[in-house]
Simulated scan of single mutants.
Amino acid sequence: MATEPAAAARRVIDIITGTWQAQALYAAVAISLPDHIAAGHTGTAELADRSGTDRDALTRLLRLLTAMGVCTGSEEAGYGLTEVGELLRGEHPHAMGDMVRLYGEEFHRAWGSVADVVRTGGSGFEHAHGRSLHEHLRDVPGAGAKFQRAMNAGNVFFPGVLDAFDFGRCRRVVDVAGGSGMLLSVVLQAHPQLHGTLFERPFMVPVAREYLDKTVGDDGRYETVGGDLFERVPQGADAYLLSRVLQDWDDERCVRLLANIRAALPPEGRLLILERVIDTSGATILPLLWDLHLLMAAGGRERTLDGYRSVLTAAGLRLESVHSLALETSLLIAARA
């Protein structure tokens, strides 16, 4: 019995220091530490010189990063990168550095307002930055592209969509609010018979066009269309993609955008929704963390399966099936009711 208070205290300490690990990871990316190590600069003095940092402070950061499983080695032997550390290199094909920057800068400040948000509502981003996330992405130069690079870094679950849904029966697919076009690119590359439309806010269209030109090619297989998903979406596709969009909006606006997709959906068409589903038993923590993060970032939310059914039903759609993907993400397939 005597050890129970100590174990509980240790759990509190582990929780409250979690943000320190996140910020240590951010610091490593901010000073390009993984890139310097990958370039062969492994000694502490050399790394301090290359990164323009204080040697003592860097030594202490490297010790923590090694304990966290980001780096290998020691001050005496020199440092290397683990598989985790490799993902932070700028040239890694699945680089996550921009995601770390976004969460270490804008979103870290937003989370500083968590108590205020719980008391009064709203979003942490607005409390901290004086504007909504969507206004920030629209108005701050480079913010939209940075955000999409960060989102792309967390999209390792996209290939699972190809296994869960048969695109072979489709001729046209529309990615609604498709961001940089990464999901549409994955689908088009796997299914050469498809024609794709990426529908996004006008200021994001150039970012998507650049990415799709690079990954799919400028061969007429896709088009980009700017517009407002709360007004209308392109008509008549066999499949509509909606990846991590519902999480940004309240139920009323979700029903409105889903109703617009319902109006465009042919009788045999399908809507593919990628979101995290809250397990009310608490068995999976990542959707619960993301649920509160969305409140901090955009005033949004994750939903339970019943919550998704509710907004789909109100828009004239029915949930047909649910498929588990990586990173505790789910693919929800919906059809016309």
Rank of each mutant, 00 (worst) to 15 (best):
L312I: 07
P34D: 10
R131E: 14
L212S: 02
D98E: 13
S113A: 15
T120Q: 15
C71W: 00
A326V: 10
V12S: 15
E268K: 12
D175W: 04
L331Y: 05
V245A: 01
E105K: 10
E91K: 14
M68K: 08
D250I: 03
E106H: 07
L102A: 09
R119A: 15
R253Y: 00
T42F: 10
R109S: 15
S310H: 14
P159N: 02
L133W: 11
L88Q: 08
M96D: 05
I285F: 09
G112P: 11
A7Y: 11
E76H: 10
L312N: 08
L133N: 09
A335L: 06
G130H: 08
T280F: 05
A264Q: 00
A38R: 14
A315P: 04
A259W: 00
E275I: 05
G168A: 10
E302R: 13
L184W: 07
G90W: 06
F158C: 08
E75A: 13
M1P: 12
V311Y: 02
V187N: 05
R119Q: 15
Q148Y: 09
V70Q: 06
T44G: 14
S32L: 10
P267I: 01
A259G: 06
F199Y: 09
V174K: 08
T280S: 13
E302Y: 06
Q247R: 09
R60W: 11
A67R: 09
M1V: 11
D219F: 05
E91D: 15
Y26H: 15
Y103Q: 13
R10E: 15
G227P: 01
A315F: 02
I16H: 10
R262S: 00
T53H: 09
C71I: 04
T329H: 12
D54K: 07
V233W: 00
R221W: 01
A297C: 05
H41N: 15
F157T: 07
G154C: 05
L88V: 05
G300T: 03
A7D: 13
C254Q: 04
G43V: 06
L288Q: 09
G299D: 03
V140R: 06
Y308T: 04
D35Q: 09
A297Y: 03
A208W: 02
P34K: 10
P202Q: 04
H127E: 15
D35R: 12
L212K: 01
G121N: 13
E75S: 12
R172L: 09
F167A: 10
L272K: 03
E268Y: 02
P93K: 08
P202K: 05
V12K: 13
E4Y: 13
L317P: 04
G220K: 02
T17N: 14
G178T: 02
F158T: 12
A9C: 13
H136N: 07
A143Y: 01
F147P: 00
V225A: 01
V100I: 12
F203P: 03
D238L: 01
A95N: 12
Y103H: 15
V322D: 09
L292N: 04
L25S: 10
L198N: 05
D238T: 06
G52D: 07
R244I: 11
I261H: 00
E91H: 15
S32I: 01
E126C: 11
G307F: 04
R149D: 05
P192Q: 09
A334L: 02
H195K: 14
Q189F: 06
V186Q: 10
A115C: 11
G18M: 12
Q148R: 07
